[in-house]
């Protein structure tokens, strides 16, 4: 087999450009994962609870606890990992004052309930098909999780979810619980 060096050169130069581009994109992303020193008050909201609870989920009622508020949807692939992973953290840390609450942005409530049948969790699930609450939280990806301190301030944002993310998230939550 004889590789044609001259024309292959074109291809590999092209690859090099792409790799360089990718590397620069990746590098610029990792810059933002730094220390949390700020406090942005979480928007207030009231939403109906559709699973693992009754009545309404209101931001006001959550103040005083460390809260992980997660926006998800049944059509979101990584949510199949994030919801069960959050449940594990919730089960471990709820006695130390952690509240996990999730808001589904599904257009149809049944779609969310079907999803929960397949991936059951124990924390309350609220429903907002209007888009008002995710809009107020400026959600820019599924899932989007907001870590809120005891004073009601958003302190960290977690967009997307991949295997292993729960480790860093758990550390972050524990640090906040110990404040």
């Amino acid at each position: 087999m004889s590789l044609q060096v001259s024309s292959l050169g074109h291809v590999f130069r092209w690859c090099a450009v792409l790799i360089a581009l990718n590397t620069s994109l990746t590098a610029s992303d990792s810059v933002s994962a730094e220390t949390a020193t700020i406090k942005v008050p979480a928007p207030d909201f009231v939403l109906p609870v559709i699973a693992n609870g009754k009545g309404a989920l209101a931001m006001d009622d959550l103040e005083g606890s460390v809260v992980y508020l997660d926006f998800w949807a049944s059509w979101c692939g990584p949510c199949r990992l994030s919801l069960p992973a959050l449940d594990t953290i919730y089960q471990e840390l709820k006695d130390q004052g952690l509240i996990v609450a999730a808001i589904t942005v599904d257009a149809v409530e049944e779609d969310a309930l079907d999803f929960l049948q397949r991936y059951p969790v124990s924390y309350p699930i609220a429903f907002d098909s209007s888009g008002d609450v995710p809009s107020a939280f400026a959600v820019n990806g599924m899932p989007s999780g907001y870590l809120i301190d005891r004073s009601g301030n958003v302190r960290a944002l977690h967009v997307g979810f991949k295997r292993g993310d729960e480790v860093a998230l758990r550390d972050e939550i524990i640090a906040m619980l110990e404040e």
Binding site: F71, A73, S74, W75, C76, G77, V105, D106, A107, D111, G131, P134, S135, V139, N140, G141, M142, S144
Partner: peptide, 11 residues
């Protein structure tokens, strides 16, 4: 299109 309105795009 906002992130929470992408359900149909995920069909």
């Amino acid at each position: 299109v906002p992130a929470w309105e992408r359900g149909y795009l995920a069909e």
